[in-house]
Amino acid sequence: MDSDGGRTRTEVDAGDIQIWKEAVTRVRLSQAVVEQCGDPMAGSALSEDDASCPATAKISDAARGVLFAALDNLAMWCNAVAPKVYVEGVPSESASRPHFTLARAGIECAAQAGWLLEPEDRATRIERHLRLVLADMGEEQKAAGRHDPAVAAVLGERIAALKEDHGPIKAAPAYLDMVRATAGRGGVTDDHAEVLWRTASAAAHGKAWFVGAAHITHLGEEFAEGRFRAVHEVNPRAISAVVGFASKLVLWATFQYVSRLGLDFPSLYSSGLAQVASDLPRSVPDVPSETAE
């Protein structure tokens, strides 16, 4: 793995490799489970939720969309560290920041899905859904306003109609609020979740403090007063912490989704696990074998 700000490589030890393997398995298992799901079962929580939602903004569609977004980002991380097919003797290498950037996207989307689906009370789920829908439409309207005023106007009408039909709608929570609210489901405290999220955000946004937070710094020569040559070696444990949290959170969000659909999670879990086991990463030789004449 390449360090930040240089090409120094860091080997990942067995303990962190095991954590990464477990994280990859959770993500790929979650994918396998979600891909088996269809429409909500009659009489299920999401079926009844959908009946109370606008025709163009069903809660089941929103939940599926944001859960797929979490899995798409985390799957890309999986494919980087544990490709389905790899070449014997060729190490997997990557820079440090993308690990955190992809994990951050997964955390935000999984937290949103879980925050939306967790309440047992239907009215609370629908209220949360409408808050997220309104925020989504507002962002789309801002973007449209920069290039297509007609579309922005239509969106403004839809926003007004939503408010008229459902009464006052509170602003959606910030991503950090949802991350903190669901932190325990990912196995960490809300404060620890915030630290992980802020560190991952710093990686994505190119913040300087990310280097100190996720790397081990080795000082070299002092080339000017108070200034030293330095090598920043990525700390694999920092990656393990953020991907471990992200993968646990997305598996929990998957459980919430399947349960609200009215489907049997243990059955889908078992078949998903069998699918993951049948498609484990495999190696190929670095030199292709000769073709038979």
Rank of each mutant, 00 (worst) to 15 (best):
G5M: 06
T8V: 14
T8H: 12
I19A: 13
I19V: 15
W20N: 10
R26P: 00
V27K: 04
V27G: 01
V27S: 01
Q31N: 11
A32W: 02
V33R: 01
V34W: 04
G43H: 07
S44H: 02
S52K: 15
A55E: 11
A57Q: 13
D61K: 10
A62H: 10
L67R: 07
A69W: 08
A70Q: 05
L71N: 02
L74P: 04
P83A: 09
K84P: 03
S92C: 12
S92V: 14
S94C: 12
A95M: 11
G106L: 08
C109F: 12
A111H: 05
Q112L: 13
E120D: 10
R122G: 00
T124G: 00
T124Y: 00
R125Y: 09
I126F: 01
L130V: 06
L132S: 07
V133D: 05
A135S: 14
D136R: 13
E140V: 13
K142F: 05
G145A: 04
R146S: 03
R146A: 05
V154H: 07
L155W: 07
G156P: 04
R158M: 13
A160P: 05
L162M: 15
A172L: 11
P173C: 06
Y175H: 14
Y175N: 14
Y175W: 11
V179L: 02
V179C: 02
V179Y: 01
R180G: 00
G184Q: 09
D190V: 04
D190E: 12
A193S: 04
V195L: 13
R198L: 10
H205M: 06
G206K: 06
K207T: 03
F210L: 07
V211K: 07
G212P: 03
A213F: 12
A213M: 11
A213N: 10
E221S: 10
E222K: 03
F223W: 12
R227G: 01
R237E: 13
R237K: 14
A238P: 01
S240K: 08
A241W: 11
A246T: 08
F255P: 00
R260L: 02
D264W: 02
Y269Q: 02
Y269R: 05
S270L: 07
S271K: 14
Q275V: 05
Q275G: 05
S278A: 15
S283P: 02
V284M: 14
P288Y: 13
